[in-house]
């Protein structure tokens, strides 16, 4: 009964989504379309970071690092063979490889997840703000390595002229998958272990939660979706450089998670929409009035106010009632 209602709600949301995509594609112009694509990518980023930061309380600033890995891997795999040899010095098998976008982006996500595993095994022994600083260090290391690995990444120039593959039919199914996975995790026993780690890791451990494995899993799952988002991003912008995925981006995603409410999927979803639309509103304002930086100042101010007056965010770690069935309440 509950199960079937749950499925119905999701089915309804998916149908709504398909209708929305079809409607949007036939009505609005290119510019608005690209904004809607960006909004989708931000939703993937915020909801997936929420698995790491929100559910488990692992404060990671490394999300753009994982995006960068996913983005570069996907871009190199989809790059036309004819142009690859002009720009890059790749091993033979890679130079002759040209993949369709979908499998390439999956590989990108898997690479990001594997990197999360490698980084997480040592680093996840740290907690709180020390973990945050260590993941920031990781982000900077990724940037330095990409900048200097000329033969594969073209260094600071980045890769440009990527095929413009990303569109709503790619972005929004991934949005659905991300939200679905996050939702499934949150209301499974695994999700409850994650939340219990966030509340009190000592007590969680006493109840038999494998702390370390759950932490690593949270980071790896988040990183996979970040990698996917990186691939989508690269093929939306059609270019990728080492500075595409920087601390300021980490900051924006964190803002979305905090403002939405750490642990709330709906919160991250809505905050992602609000902030990515706000950024797009501020961009022309900055360019026309020559007030560069005003968007960041505004966002930072909102974040500080939220942290002071409503530290649990808009939704706390809850979801709106109409989405919940009895067994998920």
């Amino acid at each position: 009964m509950n199960q079937s209602r749950n499925r119905l709600v999701f089915l309804a949301l998916i149908l709504l989504g398909i209708g929305f995509v079809a409607l949007v594609r036939s009505t609005v112009n290119e510019y608005i379309l690209s904004i809607i694509n960006f909004v989708g990518i931000y939703i993937i980023l915020a909801v997936s970071l929420n698995i790491t930061n929100g559910f488990t309380g692992l404060f990671s600033l490394g999300h753009p690092g994982f995006m960068a890995i996913g983005g570069y891997v996907t871009a190199i795999l989809t790059f036309p063979v004819s142009r690859k040899s002009m720009f890059l010095e790749l091993p033979q098998w890679l130079a002759n490889l040209e993949m369709p976008f979908f499998p390439a982006s999956i590989i990108g996500g898997v690479c990001a997840a594997m990197m999360a595993l490698v980084v997480g095994l040592p680093v996840l022994r740290l907690r709180g703000h020390y973990l945050a600083v260590a993941t920031l260090g990781f982000l900077i290391i990724v940037q330095v390595l990409i900048t200097n690995w000329d033969s594969v990444t073209r260094g600071p120039l980045g890769l440009n002229g990527l095929p413009a593959i990303t569109n709503l039919w790619y972005v929004y199914p991934w949005v659905v998958v991300t939200v679905y996975v996050a939702w499934k995790i949150k209301f499974s026993s695994y999700g409850r272990s994650m939340l219990s780690i966030r509340e009190d890791d000592m007590a969680a451990q006493c109840l038999g939660v494998n702390l370390f494995r759950t932490r690593v899993a949270a980071l790896v799952i988040g990183a996979f979706f970040a990698g996917i988002a990186g691939g989508l991003w690269a093929h939306l912008v059609t270019a990728i450089t080492p500075t595409s995925f920087s601390l300021i981006l980490a900051f924006y995603i964190v803002v979305m998670v905090v403002v939405g409410g750490a642990g709330s999927i709906s919160g991250a979803f809505i905050a992602a929409i609000i902030f990515s639309v706000l950024t797009e509103i501020f961009r022309p304002l900055e360019e026309n009035l020559d007030v560069y930086g005003i968007g960041e100042i505004f966002t930072a101010a909102i974040l500080i106010l939220i942290l002071i007056y409503r530290p649990q965010g808009l939704f706390g770690s809850r979801e709106p009632g109409f989405l919940l069935t009895r067994d998920t309440q």
């Binding site: 703000h129 930072a300 974040l303 500080i304």
Partner: peptide, 28 residues
Amino acid sequence: RPMRGAPQVTGFIASLAVSIMLQNLGIL
């Protein structure tokens, strides 16, 4: 000062926000 007593990570995020604010005030 307004968030004294909050978890350490809260302070850290706030300081990140302050940093971004100061940098962009500088740019502005």
